[in-house]
Amino acid sequence: MATLFVADIHLSVQEPAITAGFLHFLRRQAAHADALYILGDLFEAWIGDDDPAPLHDEIAAALNALAQRGVPCFFIHGNRDFLLGKDFARACGMTLLPEERLLTLYDRPILILHGDTLCTDDLAYQRYRRRVNQRWLQRLFLALPLKWRLRIAGRMRADSQRANGAKSQTIMDVSPQAVVATLERYQAQWMIHGHTHRPAIHTLDIRGGSAHRAVLGAWHHQGSMVRVTRDSVELIEFPYN
């Protein structure tokens, strides 16, 4: 058996092929797993659990069906869906996790996270992240009418795209020092994350030995997962169907 990890699916009504691919993945691959971990950015944007979008109901039903089959599903918030709340998680039958979680899978210590907290060289993004993760600001935003939230979210996405277009790729990637410090803090052998959309498995030196970092790919054109078994950790990319 295996435990599966995905991130950066970026589901939206504008990308029906990605939705179809993710639903196919849940039925054909995740249904046979020990567990599924979604490491953030399941959705392109999330403006509140009260958004009545049919896509949300479709995904909730599919994840709930997975849970009913006995496959537990866990979720770590990403930078796109950090407002995803307990009501939607309950509808999905999935468990919300903190931004970092140390697992022990098949006797292997694995640290999981979305990955944006590792991009410490991007000072502007880290300032933005601290601001939008203030609980009082989130409560204020969620109290606004839905149409206002849609307008604000659209403007924020446009601003983010413009800002990222002016940044170097190096700044938007993880900081090696942050990766090493985080692994050493948890004394983890492996780290799995998404966010950067740069799928790869890296080996690095940490205090006391070596460690590995598996980076999940985004689902823009194909699926991407990390498959962990007792014998291996694999990064696998696959077609939507």
Score class of each variant (00 low, 15 high):
Cys119Glu: 06
Pro72Arg: 14
Gly70Val: 11
Leu111Asp: 00
Lys147Tyr: 14
Gln29Thr: 11
Asp122Ser: 03
Arg131Glu: 15
Phe74Gly: 11
Thr203Glu: 15
Thr120Asn: 03
Gln169Thr: 10
Ser175Lys: 08
Gly154Thr: 09
Asp159Arg: 12
Gly208Glu: 00
Ala17Glu: 14
Ala33Thr: 11
Gly165Pro: 03
Ala65His: 13
Asn164Val: 05
Asp116Pro: 00
Thr196Asp: 06
Val132Trp: 01
His56Ser: 08
Ile171Gln: 08
Ala67Lys: 15
Leu150Ser: 04
Ala2Cys: 12
Tyr240Asn: 04
Cys92Ser: 00
Leu123Trp: 13
Glu99Arg: 13
Arg198Trp: 05
Val174Lys: 07
Thr182Glu: 05
Arg162Val: 09
Thr120Ile: 08
Phe88Ile: 05
Arg135Ile: 15
Ala45Thr: 13
Glu184His: 09
Ile9Asn: 06
Ala2Arg: 14
Val215Pro: 02
Ala143Pro: 04
Ala214Arg: 02
Ala200Trp: 10
Asp159Ala: 11
Asn164Leu: 09
Gln29Ala: 11
Arg157Lys: 07
Arg139Met: 08
Pro52Asn: 10
Gly78Met: 02
Arg108Trp: 07
His114Asn: 11
Pro16Ile: 01
Ser12Cys: 04
Asp116Val: 03
Thr104His: 11
Ile236Val: 15
Cys119Tyr: 04
Tyr37Arg: 00
Asp107Trp: 12
Arg149His: 07
Val180Leu: 08
Ala61Asn: 14
Ala91Leu: 02
